[in-house]
Design a binder for these strands. Sequence first.
DNA 1: TTTTCAATACGTCAATATGACACAATGAAA
DNA 2: TTTCATTGTGTCATATTGACGTATTGAAAA
Lengths: 275, 275
Amino acid sequence: MSVLSALGPQVRMRLRPIMAIKIDLQQWLSEPGNDFLSHISLDCAVFGFHAGELRILLLKMKNQDRLALPGGFMMAQESLEEAAIRTLEERTGLENIFLQQFHVFSDPARSESADRAEDFKKMGMHPSKMEWFAQRWISVGFYALVEFSQVNPKPDALSETCCWYSLEERGKLILDHDQILETALATLRLQLNYQPIGYNLLPRKFTMPELQKLYETILGKKLDRRNFQRKMLSYGILHALDEKRTGVAHKAPYLYSFHLRNYQKALRQGLEAGW
Amino acid sequence: MSVLSALGPQVRMRLRPIMAIKIDLQQWLSEPGNDFLSHISLDCAVFGFHAGELRILLLKMKNQDRLALPGGFMMAQESLEEAAIRTLEERTGLENIFLQQFHVFSDPARSESADRAEDFKKMGMHPSKMEWFAQRWISVGFYALVEFSQVNPKPDALSETCCWYSLEERGKLILDHDQILETALATLRLQLNYQPIGYNLLPRKFTMPELQKLYETILGKKLDRRNFQRKMLSYGILHALDEKRTGVAHKAPYLYSFHLRNYQKALRQGLEAGW
DNA sequence: TTTTCAATACGTCAATATGACACAATGAAA
DNA sequence: TTTCATTGTGTCATATTGACGTATTGAAAA
């Protein structure tokens, strides 16, 4: 078994048809019961790349100043991945989202949030649901990579807004979500040579400087322009197009797209060495 | 935050004092209630290295031909890591076990085992406990690295024996444990340059050929003896001892030990490049 | 229109790392 | 005492890396 296939879903590949169950969340909040598994939740760090920056999709919680990663729960017949995809389809409007689980956060102290009973009451939450939210949660962290321009963010029942934040300017997150996000970023760095990260974050056509900026952002360091191009081309995973990017100041850069077949093959080897 | 610190516990480092709760498992089986969280379990791939081979610690299930990874459940106030450590201390007699979570297995079909009601009844299991075992389980996979010679394997309440198997000669495992084990191995390969795998699998003093054999086993390919030594020494993570291994046929090889400080520093960089 | 200039494309070269071997030394077993 | 599989050390051609130089482009400024 290859490393990649052992560790999870492939490039934008659907595991199994998702049940198209749509839940009216406001109504769900006001009812006593629910169909979700107890104790287990998931939180997603959704990354996009825009204007040379990594962006993260965050929810602004109702009656609170804090931001939160989009999260969700598992239904009785779902896998974690299916639950995460369902959650993110609701939040982004996208289908076929690339995601990877990366860590389970299970510190008993992580669920001991401030008492939000008052807020929940204002939101019209049923008492039994408040109890349910107050239980201990073990959360599986996912990171998701999406094409920034394709996303239509939608808040969930507990949040006012859902929008993009730059990593530097993001505010304080709820609970241990800062830690989850930091761990997601560290994982991204670690998996840069093993996962189709460029492919899923960039639009189909992109320039070499754009690809380089993405690598620099994830790795957190400057790379030499000329050496980057040499190495990247040597992998044979890029398809040089005849087009150039127009309407941009200075010399027009060439456009590239990924040679998906070679890319996946190269990732399986691990794009040997580091940067 | 460094990649390592973001991704979990460090080299044989205790997170927090473990509650020294010892459970009489036979009695626990015969009682109705239990203090464990529902739905969430953990399974551990415990690796040792002996006679130039990777070994895996497996349980032979009572009334069954199948083998199983040591597993366990979470108590109300434990983190996953603490639960895994508690489980493995019971199974191996070791303290300060190095372990890493690597994947969550959540396919709804994974819990749909053959009906074992008859077996469970023979074992004196309480009916409510049988129901509890029959629920859907989402299992967090851990791999653990132990020093083979230090382990005192002990079976649990559901198993007859607990002992080492070579990876090739192991029999068929229950449920999806084969997949969990394969994924653990793939993770080990992937993390060889980022985790203190040699340090935790080998005894304190070891020879260069032993270290090489370990790398070859995990990577699944032969390495050149001389190039391996050159590269390994260039990292500066080894401490050359004055002793040689005696009592062995042919030329006596030198002994080495890890220079822990340099080793950890090097791992944080990722022991650049691959083999 | 012409000029400017920041950004891009393409190339060079020394230093380093890698892969593939050769050869001498050792020490238990024959 | 000899044998010989195994270990310690070294060499060399080749590939890769890091650092930097120069020519080209095309929108924006003059």
